[in-house]
Each structure stands twice: as structure tokens, then as C-alpha cells.
Design a protein around this nucleic acid. Sequence first.
RNA 1: GGGCGCGUGGCUUAGCUUGGAUAGAGCAUCGGGUUCCUAACCCGACGGUCGGGGGUUCAAAUCCCCCCGCGCCCGCCA
Length: 598
Amino acid sequence: MNSSSPSSRPPPDPWSRLAPPLVDRLLEAFRAESLPVERPVLESALDRTGGEGWDLALAVHRWARTAGRTPPRLAEDLVARLRPVAPPLRSADAAHGYVNLTLEPATVARETLETVFQRWERYGHWEPSSANACVEHTSANPTGAFHVGRVRNAIIGDTLVRVLRARGIPAVTQYYVDDMGRQAAMITWIWSRSPESWPPEIRAEAPTVDPAEKADRRLGRPYPAVSEYLKSHPEAQAEVAAIVQEVERGHPPPDHRARISEILDGMLASLARIGIRFDERVWESSLLESGAVGAVIDRLLKAPHARVEANGAAAIDATGYRLPKEEAKIIVRRADGTSLYVTRDVAYHLSKFARFERVIDVLGQDHRLHAQTLDALLAEIGEPRRAEYVIYQDLTVPEGGRMSTRRGTGVWLDDLLDEAVRRAREEVRKRRDDLSDAEIGGIAEAVGTSAVRYHILRVAPEKAVLFRWEEALSFEGRAAPFLQYAHARAASLLRKAGREEPPYPYDPAQLVHPEEQALLRRILALPGRVEYVARTSHVHALAGYAHDLADQFNRFYHAVPVLTAGPERESRIALVAAARRALETALELIGVTPLGTM
RNA sequence: GGGCGCGUGGCUUAGCUUGGAUAGAGCAUCGGGUUCCUAACCCGACGGUCGGGGGUUCAAAUCCCCCCGCGCCCGCCA
């Protein structure tokens, strides 16, 4: 029986110990066949995704010509060199041009469980490195509550941060708060007067002002009507412009920033319900106050393609940057001397480059040109570094187009979450008459909010997602409750066994059932998946992994008894514990709340 | 018009970074499973010219070119 003693920690990825012996054997086989192969070439050619009858596969077609043999023949010759097999190799077979290798089941069990038990909550995590990162995400204008369309940014960004941290990259999240633009000024413009004195058109759109309502909803309520009103009221436009000017000169109207803060607090409270928190808020105006924006403009004026327009505006001739614009110039300072969003963003990025090794921006695809423009300006001032952009497509709505508050196609995040939790409560009640209302409420909150987050996370960011209520609220199949249910089942087994914490003694030779072996392989794939996501930002891949792991746990659960098992009981409890631990980590990384019961 | 992205069974989607074996799931439909550890589960069936065409390659959903359709952007707004 192996036992888990917290001695020296094994490396994060069990594969790093499982794979090398097999690669060594393959290299020997190639050498014996007089085929020169470099180790990295072989390693990158190996398919380790696993399949029916193989853990590692190698397609040998690319070497067939050099070897003067057909691929099937070469595969057979190589396999002959691998025999007789010895642990950790279990089998080597040739199949129409492929060399298929399987690992000794007991070796897989031992390496996986040892790594999980000795690293425990650090399984799937790396030791911290010195290279840090900054992830800027969401940064929605603080003009009102979040609708579901804006929240995809937050979910992608937050998941990415969690994964980077697991990968050992110290990551800081920043919310870039726009308090300088016309939108923020519109909020201040309308709320600097009492609702009784609002223009009738706006009052009609915002008839009730309930002081008890959440600040983002209450203060943002007149915003769409104000936006509409300004289109036909130049004098009001001028007042808003005046507010922008005051902010630009460093003398914002009283309560300007405080009111924006209040709205933002409300918005972030909604995001906190789905597990999203920010480390820092960066106020756009602070970049102006610190002189950073002025410094950027000075540098831009000295840039190779700088020029000053007849009216005094400063511009960069961007002909060489191949921007998809009719006129290849970027205005970096208005004729009236005030700054522009893109110029301020240059200052913002310089401040990020000064503090962080990796700078990541999560942006909707409508910001892609902005990112290109930003890159062009960074090049102009001789800044070699660039942000990594994670671009996602906006949610669309059955009526067509993006969610829009103005067109009435927006769905408030708070409303969606409330409805999800309400439905979850019904589902829990249906199944659990033994729980108190408080317990049911807790589970329902976790199930409902997780379902919404998972629904948005599971699709690749570059894919447009069509929002439908029924689908966002679905608790079936590829949805968060499926994952939470598997975790709750595992937790329940361990609770009944009275074995909720390590140590877990086990005999790796007893975990040879196909479903046990499949489960072990899912568990040991976690670190590799974390590494992949941290490298590529494909956060949805982790949502898929969590589902696969839960799926395989369910199959195992149905295939073999645990508590009522005979001699294998202890080993299976250990496997359940490892699966639960891996699943908990996976769920935490994607922001789905793991539940002990449901 | 230019640029970027997307197009995979009835619906929603994975796989595309790094080409490799029979394209993997969920929903829906149909058929099974609970004297046993949570049935929000499991097993099975049905269903695919991977938008169209061409190219590269021993091999293309994956790489290249053209076309079609959809979305987004092209402001001294943010």
C-alpha cells in the first residue's frame, strides 16, 4: 500500500515523469532503425490525447520515405524494437502507420495519485514565478447596470486571471474607469439637477426613482433617455461638453467622481455574485493629473510621422501602419488642446509596461481597430512592447444585433442571476426536503450563478453567442450543475467514508478497471490543461475539461462500487478523493462554486 | 469599398495554435437502467458532402488562394 506523506513535492505535472521513459525508448528504437530523430521533434510529434488502446501515439508517415519503407511497415519495425516491453510501458502496437503505446495501469495510478495527494490544493498550480502580468478587463463605462452583453468580457478576463495565477504568474486585475468622456459627463449632467427639473422627455423614461434601488440601476436609469435627448438639444450638448472640459482641466464638478464610484460599486457588486473581483481601479483622469498624458503628447509630437493640422490638432500620419481607415491619420490631440481616448490609452499602457512583464487586454471585437491604433502610436514613440489582446465576439440577441438598453433588447445581469437562482431553488426543493430554507438558498445561489457564468464561458471567445433565456438558465447537460453534481457526489462518498482529508492509503495495482483508468487519465490531464490555457488564453478549454472530468467521474461512479467494494475499497476512496480534489480545482479556476451537497 | 472575426448533424457546440487513425459532446427524438454509495445521473439508437470551389501534402475540419453568407469596426466619441 502506498501512503501519502507530505515529504518533497512532486513536480506539478505527472506527465513530466510519465512521458520521458517512453520517449527514451522511442528514441532508441529510431536509432536502432538508423533514423536520426531529435528528441524535441519526437516529443512534439507525439499525440498524448489518448484513445482506444493507446496513451501515446506516433504517426510515422513523415519518416517513411527516409526509411525507404511504407508507414505500416516502419511502424511494425519500430514496435519490434520496443519489445519486450517493460514498465512503465505496458504495450506497444503498430496499426496502419501508427506506433501506439500504453502505460502500465499501476504506474499511471501511482504517479497520478502521488502527485495529487502530495500537492493537494496545489495540484494544478505551479510555484510562483517572478514574471508578473496585468489583466485589464471589463472596463465598461460606469453609466449604469451591467447587462448580460457586457459581462462576457468580465467572465473571460476573470477566468484568465485565475488560470494565470495557478500557472504561477502573479497577476493583477485592473478596471480602467472612464471618468473623462462624454458618457460620464452625461451622468453628472442629469444628476446635478433634481429629477423634478429634468426635461419631460427624460422624466418620462425614468418615472420612478427609488432611493432603495441599487446605485447602478438607479443612477443609470435616465442614461438612455439622456443619450436620446442630447441628439436633438444642442444647448444640452454644450453643457455636457462643458463638463468634459472641466474634467479635462482637472476641475471636475462636485460629486462627479463620487457618483461614478457609486455606480461602479453597484456594477461590481453584480460581478461579485459570479465571483469576479478587481485588484485595482485605474481612473482615466489620474493619467492626466499625473502628467503622463501630456508626456505622451510631447513624445508623439516628436514622432517620425507627427504633424500639426491647420486648426492646431496634432496628428500622426499612419499611412505606413495599414489601418483599415479611409484617412490614414490618427488625431492625438484635439484642436482645442484637449486629449483623446487613444492618447490617454497610450499613457495607460506605458504605465502598465513599467510594472508588468505581460500586459493583457480583454476587448470586444468592436475595439479591434482601437487596439491597432494604439499599437501604431506605441510604435511611433519607439515603445517596443505591446499588449496581448484577447478578443471576443459580443453576445447577440434573437431580435438581431447586440444587446442594447436603448432598443430594449438588454437583459440585466442582476435579473438573469435572480431568475437563475429562483429556478435553482425550485430544483433543489424538488429533490431535497431534508434541508432548511437557508441551506436550500445557499445551494440555489451557487447553482444559479454558476450556471450563468458557465453558460457564457463554455463557448470560444471568438464565437458569437446568441443569448436565449432558456439556454442561459438550463441546468441540463453541458452546464454548471452537472459539474457541481459530480463534485457533490464525490464529496458525499468521502463524507460517508469518514475520509474527507488525506492521507489516503491505496494500492495502485487495484485501480485497473477501465473506468478507473480513464478517470485517472482525466485527473492527470489537469496541469497540462492549465498550462495550455495560461499560454493561449483559450479559457473555454478549461470549461470543457471540467465537463470531461465530471463526465468521467459519473461513468466511474456507475461502473464500480466504492463504499461497498471489497479489497479495493480503500484504493477507490483514494481515487474518489483525487478526482474530487482535481474537480474542485477545475471548478475554482472557471469560477463555478464547488458544492459539498446539492 | 477596406480590415478583422465567424460558418461543423434539426438546435447549441468541441476539435483549427502544432495537418494524422472511425470529426467528440450537449439539447431535441426514440429505446433501456433505481431491492445498491445523490437518477441534476448512466447505457444504447438515430442523425455529419466540417458554407462552396481550387491548391499544397503520403494525409486537410485544421495550412494557402478565390467565392458566398453573417457579425463588427473604419469619429478631433469612448
